[in-house]
Amino acid sequence: MCTVCGCGEGEATIAEETHLHPHHGHDGPLHARVHSHPHEHAHIQYRAAGNGLHFGLGAAHAHAPGLSQGRMVQIEQDILGKNNAYAAQNRARLAARGIFAINLVSSPGSGKTTLLTRTIEGLHGEIPLAVIEGDQQTSFDAERIRATGATAIQINTGKGCHLDAHMVGHAMERLDLADHSLLLIENVGNLVCPASFDLGEAHKVAILSVTEGEDKPLKYPDMFHAADLMLLNKVDLLPYLDFDVARCLEYARRVNPRIRVILTSATGGEGMAEWLDWLLAGLKNARSGV
C-alpha cells in the first residue's frame, strides 16, 4: 500500500516498464491500488495512464461564495513543509534499507544522463542500482539508462520544473529497490527550483559542464550551496574553450566553502574513477548505517 500518500499537486506522470513489477498482478489504475484512504472528497491526485502515472488531476476545489464577515485564521505552515515531510519519510525508508541515494542536479545539457550511463557501465553490474529520471516530457532518458541494463523509472513532471519528494516516494515504491543498493535520481535540468526541494537523498550532486561558463555558481548560488559535490564535466573540451577552471572553483567555494569538486569527462573517462570511489564510499556508509 501507499506509505507516502496524501498526494500532491502537479501534472507529473511516472512511467516504467511494467515487467519490473511482477508483484503487481494487474494494470489497473495505481490510484485504486494505493489510495484506500477513506476521504469522502475526490482525492485523485494521480492515476495510471497506460503504463504510467498521472499526478494532480485536480484537487477538490471548494468553491463557495460567501458574504459573511472576514475573520483571521492562524496557519503558520511552511510552504515546503509537506515536501520536507515526504522527504523525511523517503530518507527514513532509504536509511532503514541501507540504500545510498543521490540527487543529480544541473542545467539541461550538462551531460547528466551520459555521466549516469558511464557510471553504470563503470560499476560493471557489481552494485545493485536503480535510476529515477526526471524530465518535463518524454522517457528518452530512462530508455538510455535501460539500454545499459539498469532499472530505470521515468517521472514526467508535466508543467513542473523539478522533482519533489512525493513523486520520488511513489517512484521508489514502484522500483522495487534492493537493500544496500544505489539510487541515482536525475532531477529535471534546472539550476533554480531543485535546490529547494529535498527528495530525501543523502547528497545533492551538482553537475556543471565547462561549456556553460565559469560564473554559474554565482549566478545560481542556491543550487551550489545545496550541493555537497560538484562534478565539473566535459573537461575534455577545455582546450577548445575559454573557461577558467580555477575561477569557477573559487566561485563555487564562495557560495559553498565545503563543496567538494571532481573534474570529470563522462565521454573521455577523466575523473570517473574518483567519482566512482566517492559513490562507493557513500554506499559503504549507507550500508553500515553511518
Binding site: G8, E9, G10, A59, A60, H61, A62, A64, G66, R71, V73, I75, Q77, I79, L80, G81, K82, N83, K159, G160, C161, H162, D164, N190, V192, C193, S196
Partner: peptide, 24 residues
C-alpha cells in the same frame, strides 16, 4: 516557474486547512 510550484503548495496548505470547515 519556481514561484508557480510554491504557489501551488501554498494553495494546498490553504485547502488542507479548509477541510475542517473553518472557512469556505
Amino acid at each position: 516557474m519556481h514561484e508557480m510550484s510554491l504557489a501551488e503548495d501554498m494553495l494546498q496548505i490553504i485547502e488542507d486547512n479548509a477541510r475542517s470547515g473553518a472557512y469556505t
